[in-house]
């Protein structure tokens, strides 16, 4: 049996708001996500969805508890180690795409490989293959400003995959898209899931959530429900 991709044990995150008592954003969360799972995280604003996603993405430190990423405790790692784990194991997809305006499509897709120290020719090859996969080959020399929202998100999906991550984290990936292009992105994610990619998705959109295999519901920082999608 392979290690779960994510294993959380009593994970908590509290923010100290000035001198007053700390505010708990996430209270003792324990869960496991196995390879190949397609998980949706749902809940109202302020329920701790983003905090959970930041913790999973190694952007934030838990106040207490343990986080094992692919069987490895990541609690005590320093900034550089966390950066290279993010680079190698985690792919990010953002609600507002977060493409770099100074780079063209290929350039954007190549960025994570730059930080991984991949050779230029190999970078080019991989970037072009992924751009082909998301169907943007004719637009590979365009700048983000010349693309539609759906196209930008496809670029972001391609970018999230270039280092072949263990875990794909998507924060409201269809939140800024109209329903038609949202459908394209949803299809793309489902496609990735079918190919065995482990995906965690934060969304308000229950339609999108229902297409996953498992839904985590958060309320006030606690895991309220953990079950299969309807």
């Amino acid at each position: 049996m392979r290690d779960p991709v994510v294993h959380l044990e009593g994970l908590s995150r509290a923010y100290s708001a000035g001198t007053t008592a700390a505010v708990a954003a996430l209270k003792s969360i324990s869960l496991s996500i196995d390879p190949g799972e397609y998980v949706a995280v749902m809940g109202p604003s302020g329920s701790g969805k983003s905090t959970l996603l930041n913790l999973l993405g190694l952007l934030d430190h838990p106040t207490s508890g343990s986080y094992m990423l692919a069987g490895r405790e990541v609690g005590g790692l320093d900034d550089d180690e966390r950066s290279s784990l993010r680079n190698r194991y985690i792919g990010f997809i953002f609600q507002s795409f977060n493409l770099f305006p100074q780079l063209d499509v290929i350039g954007n897709v190549e960025v994570p490989m730059l930080y991984a120290g991949v050779h230029a020719r190999e970078r080019r090859r991989k970037a072009e293959a992924l751009i082909e996969m998301v169907g943007l080959t004719p637009r590979r020399h365009h700048r983000p400003t010349q693309l539609s929202g759906g196209e930008m998100q496809r670029v972001a999906v391609a970018r999230s995959l270039v280092n072949d991550p263990l875990l794909l984290l998507a924060d409201e990936p269809t939140g800024n898209l109209d329903s038609e292009t949202a459908e394209v992105i949803a299809g793309l994610l489902e496609d990735l899931h079918r190919r065995g990619r482990t995906i965690v998705l934060v969304t308000h959109n229950s339609e999108l959530a229902n297409r996953t295999t498992r839904i985590l519901r958060l309320r006030s920082g606690e895991l309220q429900r953990d079950g299969a999608a309807a």
Binding site: D80, F92, N98, V111, Y115
Partner: peptide
């Protein structure tokens, strides 16, 4: 700032 945050998420170290 957003570019910087994104780069960090994609694996840029502080020194990068």
């Amino acid at each position: 700032r957003k570019e910087i945050g994104t780069r960090r998420a994609l694996g840029a170290k502080q020194r990068d």
